[in-house]
Simulated scan of single mutants.
Amino acid sequence: MTTVDRSEAMDHLERLAAQLEAHSFQVRLTAPAGLYPRLRVINPMEPTMAEDVLASSASDGEWWYWLSWAGRIGHASDVVTAAERIASVLHVIRR
């Protein structure tokens, strides 16, 4: 991942983090050296329910959110839908 890609991934994850925090999820954004940046999303009512989310561009240049186990969540331009899908994975839908 290039420096530019890494920076753009962080930007997408920061937008998603803000959306999830607005719905009371706990989030932690990390950027380990040599690895893709990731957003740890935690269900505050059941802290053992957590997922790592990545942002990555596809071969066509479009950015997507992914669960750590390679499950595509949604397009990075649709943060609201991505947050809803993450909430459903964590068994909590907040509206």
Score class of each variant (00 low, 15 high):
85 R>P: 03
25 F>Q: 02
76 A>W: 10
17 A>N: 12
78 D>K: 15
24 S>D: 15
33 A>S: 13
37 P>Q: 04
48 T>G: 13
17 A>Y: 06
28 R>E: 13
37 P>M: 05
13 L>N: 10
31 A>K: 04
73 I>V: 11
81 T>H: 13
19 Q>G: 03
33 A>P: 09
64 W>P: 02
50 A>T: 05
80 V>P: 03
84 E>T: 03
24 S>K: 10
35 L>M: 14
33 A>Y: 13
86 I>N: 03
66 W>F: 13
78 D>N: 14
19 Q>F: 01
67 L>C: 07
92 V>L: 15
54 L>P: 01
13 L>T: 10
54 L>D: 00
54 L>R: 05
36 Y>G: 03
26 Q>R: 05
30 T>V: 13
21 E>H: 11
93 I>P: 01
22 A>Y: 00
22 A>G: 09
76 A>G: 14
72 R>Q: 15
24 S>W: 01
27 V>Q: 01
1 M>W: 11
86 I>A: 07
43 N>T: 00
82 A>E: 00
7 S>D: 14
63 W>S: 11
44 P>C: 02
62 E>D: 11
4 V>Q: 12
84 E>H: 12
74 G>I: 12
51 E>F: 09
62 E>L: 13
29 L>F: 02
77 S>D: 13
65 Y>D: 06
35 L>E: 12
34 G>F: 09
22 A>R: 09
36 Y>R: 14
22 A>P: 00
95 R>S: 01
18 A>E: 14
9 A>M: 07
51 E>V: 14
70 A>H: 11
4 V>Y: 12
28 R>D: 11
1 M>K: 15
23 H>W: 04
57 S>D: 10
45 M>H: 06
61 G>V: 15
91 H>T: 05
80 V>D: 14
77 S>H: 12
15 R>P: 00
74 G>P: 05
78 D>F: 06
1 M>G: 11
65 Y>G: 02
29 L>I: 15
66 W>H: 10
78 D>Y: 09
87 A>G: 15
85 R>Y: 04
7 S>G: 10
32 P>I: 11
5 D>M: 08
76 A>T: 08
68 S>W: 10
81 T>V: 12
35 L>D: 10
89 V>C: 02
60 D>N: 15
53 V>A: 02
28 R>C: 02
8 E>D: 08
17 A>P: 03
68 S>V: 05
19 Q>D: 09
28 R>A: 13
18 A>K: 14
11 D>F: 12
7 S>Q: 15
6 R>W: 02
30 T>G: 08
